[in-house]
């Protein structure tokens, strides 16, 4: 493979704020997404991923304004997901300046949407996002509405279907690892690698840089997506805590409460340096 392995910051957004929780729950407000996105761009991110985490719950979308602000200062691809239900929604997001869109809940409800979107906007523009929840018997099911609802569809079957529908890439989050820092669900990444050819981005569980090596060594993932490690690094090392003016939501991390200890705070710069040292081909 001559394509570079990508490092993609994932920014979860609730109304106008960047948030982060554990297992997609207990969201803390971390600040303005465009500020974080610009920082990650300058540090060498390969792409930025925005996910509106409440859009599919409340059916609203405040993302367009954030997208417009963001792309003034970042010159790498921007993928945006959350609450996308129709070709019209996709067009709106692209017109605001996103390069790719990511669909989850609506794709499960209406798989034809993926096919139509690929036809209209090209496969490289359409990402399908999958929230994989591990069941007691070891199976993985696809969840929707930010990990709240179980569709009862087997994750691997769903990925195969998405591949047939023509999506350009999939974005997999393991719901039970998200925000925990316990490491990636290697078993899930392995079974995806064995059964499908569609390129995939893996997310959920990274707590240290070695977790990424573990993932790359055991699967053919094309990109890793990180959130807690990067967000907490920025929050603790920048002056952002002093300069923001956000008062709504759970702002305890912004106000100075200690950040979770089980997650190593690392910048993109140091992560990429580490990956290169481990012979991983990245930009």
């Amino acid at each position: 493979m001559s394509l570079a392995f990508r490092v993609i910051p994932r920014l979860e957004i609730k109304s106008f704020n960047l948030v982060k929780g554990v297992n997609l729950e207990g969201l803390r407000v971390l600040g303005a997404p465009e500020v974080y996105a610009e920082h990650y761009y300058k540090e060498g991110a390969d792409e930025i991923f925005y996910q509106d985490v409440v859009a599919s719950l409340y059916g609203r979308n405040s993302l367009n304004e954030i997208i417009k602000k963001t792309i003034k200062n970042i010159f790498i691809p921007l993928t945006v997901g959350g609450g996308i239900k129709s070709l019209n929604d996709i067009e709106k997001i692209l017109k605001s300046g996103a390069d790719r869109v990511s669909i989850n809940s609506a794709a499960i409800k209406n798989p034809k949407l993926v096919k139509e979107a690929v036809k209209k906007f090209g496969s490289s523009t359409i990402v399908v996002s999958i929230e994989a929840g591990k069941q007691l018997n070891g199976d993985y099911k696809a969840f929707t509405h930010n990990g709240r609802e179980n569709s009862n569809i087997n994750v691997i079957d769903w990925i195969k279907k998405v591949e047939d529908l023509g999506a350009g890439e999939i974005f997999v989050t393991s719901v039970d690892r998200d925000g925990t820092g316990r490491g990636f669900d290697i078993q899930l990444a392995k079974s995806i690698s064995q059964k499908v050819r569609i390129p995939f981005i893996f997310h959920g569980g990274a707590g240290k840089m070695e977790d990424i090596i573990d993932l790359v060594d055991n699967s053919n993932v094309s990109a890793v997506s990180l959130s807690s490690m990067l967000h907490y690094d920025f929050l603790s090392k920048s002056n952002y805590r002093k300069s923001h003016s956000i008062k709504t939501g759970n702002v305890e991390y912004l106000s100075g409460k200690k950040l979770p200890k089980n997650i190593n705070q690392k910048s993109i710069l140091s992560i990429k340096k580490f990956l290169k040292k481990k012979q991983i081909n990245c930009s």
């Binding site: 394509l3 570079a4 990508r6 090209g122 890439e169 094309s222 930009s283």
Partner: peptide
């Protein structure tokens, strides 16, 4: 050969 060619290349 995966087509389209999408991503970062030298």
């Amino acid at each position: 050969l995966r087509i389209p060619h999408i991503g970062w290349n030298k």
